[in-house]
Structure formats: structure tokens, C-alpha cells
Write a protein that binds this DNA or RNA. Structure first.
Length: 655
RNA sequence: GCGCUCGUAGCUCAAUCGGAUAGAGCAUCGGCCUUCUAAGCCGAGGGUUGCAGGUUCGAGUCCUGCCGAGCGUGCCA
């Protein structure tokens, strides 16, 4: 409802500017802002300032002339000028409230966004399948998953991909560990008990040291890599076992957070199905990449380009004929965009409790496990959630797409970049790592799989659950242990997910246990708590007054224009924020920033907490006013549940 | 060297295309539980938005220079 008023207002202002001042939309496009303070009304317009030059007139005079001529939408109570030229629009609070009650009763609090025909692909997580997930991976997955939820909420069709680099050096390293350090056969590796990902985490760090011992050791890496790529023998079988089992570990970890995927494209399948060869032929043909006859890169296929007047090259095919990661990524990106005339085969990898099937690619046709394969790939827009350090490479990939003539597709290939999660030196020391003097001096140290330096995702979740369980027990001693466990888990998820999205994307997170384990202040549990309280009020209200929901609806329906209490400032402020909810989701999407949405949701729950403390609802004696206050609680509850859903944060029954 | 990102309260971060008095949390101090859950609320202190210029009706935000930080710039992935 609110956004419709906003749209109508925008149109009417635009029309009025044209009629009164002869200003066309091309000259000036009306933008509505939200004032910083409630006394400035509900909407604010700044055009008098911006038109000062065009109209050669003082902003205050323009504003006055405008108000004289302007006929606002019906829901507007008054329009006034403030601050020397701001045009402030004040809504008719009673009228808005009545309409809102209508919506509430009719169950139309949610007008769905219109469905977008385009298909969006979001690729995230992408953890090398050779060790346990850590906090850096959590940021990626939570950011990606929230983006997916936000886009689905706003009407997009989204496909979630999680790329599995099962033939890369990282997997090879662990295989080297198993074969040459542990000297284990495939059979013995299979019998390693859980947690397999933790086992490999340690092994991977040992291999890094092993390489440093001699050049001969390091040669094993190359040899192993080649054996994996060749695809047969014990080495390849071990690599397959390690990566497949590891993907299960990662999916288990992410499932704890409510993160799921649609399809898992595997690098080995990209190689086997010759995606690169198909892309290479076209890149050569269009001279997007060229062969270097001489110079330092003689024998390589490179992409040449100019950046800020400087000539630069990126090697795509090495002089030994092997393809770089960037090259493979161009082919894969083309497939994601539906521009490569090849496709994978697919088989079910996992079936979730809700019936959702997670598919994995295959190089050969399979029986598909009796399920229908959805049409994967072919996205109109592709978001790649990858940390900011890969910006350069990502740009090269998109440039490759562009040079094949797909300008629009390149434009719709989006590197959804974010800064990394690092550790504070203090945190690293707490974890038992030895830091160099230089590292101790720094503000942060990078998480390093090779050093085994980092906080594992499951460890952090375990810690959060443990702490949450203590809190739940102390507050709900009578609750069944099983339910306590469920709620502790929900709180842990809330805390972790909120923590991962409260920072803007380009802010480096310096991880610290104290902040991450907090349940107070700007945290997930704060948001959950306020929603739980709202839910409690509704439940207890119906109980206390022995009302059914139908009777409540009838009570809400009974208000008439001359029979609605005037809303005090603080209540209107909460309601006003609630009304903007749809805008908040839209703004986060437009600004490509999940943190915007998360923080706005937090600000909303702050307003509710304030409201909760200031007003007695169940105890209110005036039943008209009481029912109205309850309506606001219910509206808050409904919107908050949606908002938290977008962030993947569950709402517990009790807290 | 070049490129990207950034520098905001003691600390960690926000700030809607450039908009009105720069806001939150943590920490500190002071209040509020016989009343819908104190994981909460109210209040106080805390700022020359790194420095110097410029553009603008208006600059934390845009431009230039300087100082400082992080990342990138591999025939690694």
C-alpha cells in the first residue's frame, strides 16, 4: 500500500513540476526521500534546491509556488516547506491506519512483487573440497544465501550453484598427504571416521610443511595433479573420494545454517566434457585471445587489453598447453550464461527432508535417480559471490565473454565481491598459533588453510550453540531438553548469520570471539527476541480475552474514520518504519548490499523494543486502543518474520 | 611503480543520486524487573569525519594534492 502511495506521489509531483514550471522528467527526475526526523513528515522532496539553477529562483519560492499548485494524493494530510526549501509531505495517519487494518484483516499485508521473467544464477560457497569450512567461507555462503533469499522475495527466479574444484592443487595436496605422509590406501581412507573434514584440515597443513622440506617433495604435487587429471588409477580414485566426501561435509555444515544449493558443477566434468575446448575455439576465432610468438610470454595464448592507457596481458593458455584457471572460468561463465552450446549431465547428490534435490554434474549420462532434471544454467544474470581479491581475474573472465560479442551478457555478469574475514592477532594466539613478530604488530592476520590458521565453521557453530543452550536453560528451566536444543540452535544461527551480514561488503571483518559470540546489542538474537516477544503478546492476548482470531479480525474491522484514536508520535514512528518494509528490501537489492537490509531490520526491532517497553498492550484498559496496539504488534510480527526469513534467521517459539 | 578499496566517537561499524542537528553497538557512568520475557528499556559523557585546497544552495560522500592502511598486479587456484 505504502509504496503505491509513494509511486502515486512521485507521478503527481513530476506532473505538477511540468505543469507549473515546465520541467520535464528528462531535465529532472523526481526522487522521494525519507526525512531524517519525524517532524519533517513522511516523505521529503528536494527539487526546489536542485531546480534553483534551471528556474533561476530561490528554493523557498519554488517550494511555495509548488505547494500552491499541488494536489496531493488522498492519503496526504498536508504538505509544507521547511529548512529553506524542503517540501515535506505528511500522511493522514488515521486514514493510513484504517487501510492497514483492512490489509491485515484481509491477509494482504503482503502484496507480492511481480514475478520477473528473467532467471538469475547465484554462485556461492565454492569451497575447495580438501578441508573443513572456515569463517571466511561462512561469510561467502551467508552473503550468497541471503542474496538468493532477497531476490526470491522480490520475485526473481534464482538458481543456486556451488562450484566444486575437485581437480585443483588443493585437493592434490591432501592426496599427497594421504599417499606419501599417511601412506594410506583408498580403502583405509574410506574407513577414516568423522570428522573427515577436520582430519584433512590438519593433514593439509602438514603437507604444506612437507613441501617446504625438499624440492623432491614439492614435485609430488605436480605429479599427483597430473595423475588426477588423467583420471585413472589409485591417485584419481583417492582424489574423487576425498572431494566427494568433503562436499558432503561442507553441505552438512551449510545445512546447519539453512543454506542449500540447486546444483553442484564439478570442474572434472568441465574438463571431461571439453567445455574449455569449445570456448577456446571461439576465443581464437574472434581473436579475443592471441598466440604470443615471442617475448616473455612466447608460446602462450594471452588476452591483451589496455587498462588506463597501460598495455596488459593475461595468460589464458600456458606454453605447455595447459589452461589457466581463468581460461576454465571463461568457459564455465559462458555455460552459466547459456552461451556455450554444451551442457553437463546430472545426477541427484542429495535429497533434503523437504524433498528438495541437490544435483551434481556428471560427465556421462546417468539414470538421474528417477527424478526430472531441472534446466540448469542459462542465466540471464549471473552473480558470482567471490572475495574481492579476485576482482582482477573476474574482470578478465567477463572481458572474455564481452569479446565473444556478448556485451549484454558481460554486463550482466556480476562479481558480488566482499572483503575477507581475518583474525585479530589476539584471536590467533588464543587459538594456539605462533605468530611472527611482524604479524603480532598488525591489525589482523589472514586466515590460512595452508597453515591451518583459522576458525572452523562447525567449531564456531558448536560454541554458539553451547552458549545459547546455557542461556536458554537459565531462562526456560521447565522446557524439554529437546526443545531447548532446537532453540539454542536457532539462536546460534541467528547470531552467526546476522554477524556475517551486518558489515557492508567491502568492510574487512577482523574476527573476534567476543563480538561473534555476543547475543546482546546489534546481534541476531536481539532481532529474534523482539519477534518472539511480539508473538507472545498475540498468543497471550487471545488467551487472556478468550478471543479467536476471527473475533479479533472483527474488532479490527469495526474501526471507522471517526472512530480511530489519533496515533502518538512514537507509535507512528514504528508504523512508518513498518510501512517502508518493501522499500527496504528493494533498496538493498538496488544497492546490492545485504547489510543495508539487515541494519534496517535491526533499526525496526529497536523501535519495537522501545514501543514494547513504553506501552502495556494486554493490560491496556481501553479496548479500542488495546486492539489497535495489538494490530501494530501483529503487523510487526508478520513483517519481522519475513525480514528474518530473508536473512535466513529462524524465529524461535520462545527464548 | 601502477590499479582497486579504505581512513568517521576509546573500540567495532553505519550514514538512502550530494540533503536538514553524522547515527548504532560494545566499553564507561547513572536509573528501570509485584505488570505482555531485563537476550530488554531510558538517560549521560564521548566527533575539527586523516590533512590541505577546490566544486556546490548544501560535502563524511564528488575533484586535486599530501599522509597512512589493506588488497591486487603469477605460465597459482
Amino acid at each position: 500500500m505504502f509504496y503505491k502511495i509513494k509511486e502515486e506521489l512521485t507521478e503527481k509531483v513530476q506532473a505538477c513540476l511540468a505543469a507549473t514550471f515546465g520541467v520535464t522528467p528528462e531535465q529532472y527526475r523526481v526522487v522521494i526521500q525519507y526525512p531524517t526526523r519525524t517532524e519533517f513528515g513522511d516523505f521529503s522532496l528536494t527539487f526546489p534546491f536542485e531546480l534553483a539553477r534551471i528556474l533561476r529562483q530561490a528554493p523557498a519560492k519554488t517550494a511555495a509556488t509548488f505547494i500552491e499548485a499541488f494536489r496531493p494524493p488522498d492519503e496526504v494530510a498536508r504538505v509544507d516547506v521547511a529548512g529553506g526549501g524542503y517540501v515535506n509531505v505528511h500522511l493522514d495517519r488515521r486514514r493510513i491506519l484504517l487501510r492497514l487494518l483492512d490489509c491485515l484483516v484481509a491477509g494482504r499485508l503482503w502484496l507480492p512483487f511481480h514475478a520477473e521473467p528473467e532467471k538469475v544464477i547465484v554462485e556461492h560457497t565454492n569451497i575447495n573440497p580438501n578441508k573443513a569450512a572456515h569463517i571466511g567461507h561462512l561469510r561467502n555462503a551467508v552473503l550468497g544465501d541471503s542474496l538468493v533469499r532477497l531476490m526470491r522475495f522480490t520475485g526473481r527466479t534464482v538458481e543456486v550453484q556451488n562450484y566444486i574444484d575437485n581437480t585443483g592443487v588443493q585437493v592434490a595436496d591432501v592426496v599427497v598427504g594421504f599417499r606419501y605422509l599417511e601412506k594410506l590406501s583408498l580403502e583405509k581412507i574410506r574407513r577414516i571416521p568423522d570428522r573427515f573434514d577436520y582430519y584433512c584440515w590438519d593433514l593439509y597443513a602438514r603437507v604444506a610443511k612437507f613441501y617446504e622440506e625438499s624440492a623432491e617433495n614439492l614435485r609430488l604435487r605436480q605429479q599427483t595433479l597430473q595423475e588426477i587429471e588423467a583420471g585413472d588409477g589409485e591417485t584419481a580414485a583417492i582424489a574423487h573420494e576425498v572431494s566427494t566426501r568433503m562436499v558432503h561435509c561442507h553441505l552438512d555444515t551449510m545445512a546447519r545454517l539453512g543454506v542449500t544449493y540447486d546444483v553442484l558443477p564439478r570442474e572434472s566434468d568441465i574438463l571431461d566434457l571439453k567445455f574449455w575446448e569449445a570456448a577456446f575455439a571461439r576465443l581464437r576465432q574472434t581473436r579475443a585471445i592471441v598466440f604470443e610468438e615471442e617475448g616473455p610470454n612466447a608460446g602462450c595464448w594471452v588476452m591483451k587489453y589496455e587498462r588506463d592507457g597501460q598495455a596488459d596481458v593475461k595468460i589464458i593458455v600456458r606454453s605447455n598447453g595447459t589452461v589457466t584457471y581463468t581460461g576454465k572460468d571463461i568457459a564455465y561463465q559462458l555455460w552459466k550464461l547459456g552461451l556455450l552450446d554444451r551442457d553437463f549431465h546430472y545426477e541427484p547428490f542429495r535429497r533434503l527432508d523437504d524433498g528438495h534435490v541437490v544435483w551434481i554434474t556428471s560427465a556421462t549420462p546417468t539414470d538421474r535417480g528417477g527424478a526430472d532434471v531441472p534446466p540448469f544454467g542459462g542465466g540471464d544474470t549471473v552473480y558470482n559471490v567471490i572475495d574481492v581479491r579476485q576482482s582482477y581475474t573476474q574482470n578478465v573472465v567477463y572481458e572474455g565473454v564481452r569479446r565473444l560479442g556478448y556485451e549484454a551478457a558481460a554486463e550482466r555478469s556480476i562479481h558480488f565481491a566482499y572483503e575477507m574475514v581475518a583474525l585479530s592477532p589476539r584471536c590467533a594466539v588464543e587459538l594456539g598459533f605462533e605468530l611472527s613478530e611482524e604479524e603480532r604488530e598488525r591489525s589482523h592476520v589472514e586466515v590460512s588453510g595452508r597453515r591451518g590458521l583459522g576458525v572452523k565453521a562447525d567449531d564456531l557453530l558448536d560454541l554458539l550453540e553451547e552458549k545459547a543452550l546455557d542461556e536458554v536453560r537459565s531462562r526456560n528451566a521447565d522446557m524439554a531438553a529437546e526443545q531447548q536444543q532446537v532453540i539454542a540452535h536457532q539462536i546460534a544461527v541467528g547470531a552467526l548469520r546476522y554477524f556475517m551480514v551486518k558489515f557492508t561488503r567491502n568492510s574487512l571483518i577482523v574476527f573476534d570471539f567476543e563480538d561473534a559470540l555476543s547475543f546482546e546489542g546489534e546481534t541476531g538474537p536481539y532481532l529474534q527476541y523482539s519477534a518472539v516477544r511480539a508473538g507472545n503478546i498475540l498468543r497471550k492476548y487471545l488467551d487472556r480475552y478468550a478471543m479467536t482470531r476471527e473475533e479479533l479480525d472483527a474488532a479490527w474491522r469495526s474501526y471507522t474514520p471517526d472512530h480511530v484514536p489519533e496515533l502518538p508520535e512514537d507509535v507512528w514512528e514504528l508504523l512508518g518504519t513498518l510501512l517502508k518494509f518493501r522499500d527496504l528490501a528493494q533498496a538493498a537489492l538496488t544497492g546490492q548490499e545485504i547489510a543495508t537490509f539487515a541494519r534496517n531490520l535491526y533499526a525496526l526491532s529497536q523501535k519495537f523494543s522501545n514501543f514494547y517497553n513504553r506501552h502495556q498492550i494486554i493490560g491496556e484498559e481501553n479496548s479500542d486502543w488495546r486492539n489497535l496496539l495489538l494490530a501494530i504488534v501483529v503487523i510487526y510480527y508478520e513483517k519481522m518474520k519475513r525480514g528474518l526469513e530473508i536473512l535466513g534467521i529462524p524465529v524461535p517459539e520462545r527464548m
